[in-house]
């Protein structure tokens, strides 16, 4: 037995309701729906969902459109109604002569052949002209087709390169923003106080600095030199407010390596900053014996 559940999951039903299938695909979906009530139900639900979505976008057409559109539509369908009987009538005699002609062609009468001869030669002249025209038109079509193909593949290539370019631009924009932000921090001594963090006796060469805006409560960290970390550990910055440590966030690897300035967590108030080594992800409280650098404002 075929697995209707698998068919439901296949995405074919969504394609069906979105009009994304050729007639063969549509027939396939319809036959599944006819055989399995579960598929039918799923299909109905998807259709209803799409209907809700379509209807949610309903817009009252602009004023005046009702009369314009309705009168044109009624005129068109009215004239088509009148034209239909006429068309069927004029179609009838067109269809009728065909068998007669076939009879006469397969069973020609001598008199008619004689009369038809000059006509045939002028007709063959026309036929040659028509063939030449057809050949020319085929050649031109082939040429235009190949140009069109070329143009559409050029277009695809251009689209791809545009997409790539847009992505690069986005990345560059993001980098530029963060660089500008860092520059602003470094260039605003009134706004950002520099707090030098010096190495503790255990790590005399360690050095870093914190830029702290007391007004905006923002904290940036710039590392000059920190000892390499054992695996599974991460540096964590702490603000000391009235002697109490407040988590200011963990350092990204490139920050710890001194490659970039990192914005840390906002700190409401602090008199000193310190850094400790904590398990990756940070700790709730500092492990004091791993303190690497510290500095007062």
């Amino acid at each position: 037995m075929e697995d209707y559940q698998e068919y439901i999951e296949s995405g074919r039903l969504e394609q069906y309701v979105l009009g994304d299938l050729d007639p063969a695909g549509q027939a396939e979906v319809e036959s599944w729906a006819a055989r399995f009530p579960q598929v039918r139900q799923e299909l109905d639900e998807l259709q209803a969902g799409l209907g809700v979505y379509a209807e949610a976008h309903a817009v009252a057409p602009p004023a005046g459109m009702r009369d314009r559109v309705l009168s044109r539509v009624l005129a068109e369908i009215g004239s088509a109604e009148n034209a239909t009987p006429a068309a069927t009538i004029s179609n009838a005699p067109l269809a009728a002569p065909a068998p007669t002609m076939r009879v006469s062609a397969s069973n020609p009468r001598p008199a008619e052949t004689y009369a038809a001869a000059p006509a045939a030669s002028s007709r063959s002249g026309w036929a040659i002209a028509a063939s030449v025209a057809l050949l020319l038109s085929l050649a031109v079509n082939a040429l235009l087709y190949s140009r069109w193909q070329q143009a559409s593949s050029d277009l695809v290539a251009a689209q791809n390169s545009q997409a790539r370019f847009a992505q690069t631009t986005q990345v560059m924009e993001r980098r530029l923003n963060s660089t500008q932000e860092q520059l602003h921090v470094l260039r605003s001594p009134q706004e950002y106080k520099m707090v030098a963090l010096a190495g503790t006796p255990a790590h005399p060469t360690a050095r870093a600095r914190v830029m702290y805006s007391t007004k905006e409560h923002r904290v940036y960290l710039d590392v000059q030199q920190l000892p390499a970390l054992p695996a599974g550990k991460q540096y964590q910055l702490w603000a000391l407010d009235k002697g109490k440590p407040v988590d200011a966030g963990v350092l990204a690897a490139n920050t710890a390596a001194g490659d970039s300035i990192q914005q840390m967590k906002d700190i409401a108030s602090a008199q000193a900053f310190a850094m400790t080594v904590e398990p990756t992800g940070g700790s709730a409280g500092p492990t004091l014996d791993t303190m690497t650098v510290i500095g007062n404002m």
Partner: peptide, 11 residues
Amino acid sequence: ARTALKILAKL
């Protein structure tokens, strides 16, 4: 697409 359409159908 499927999840979205199902959510909409529930409405």
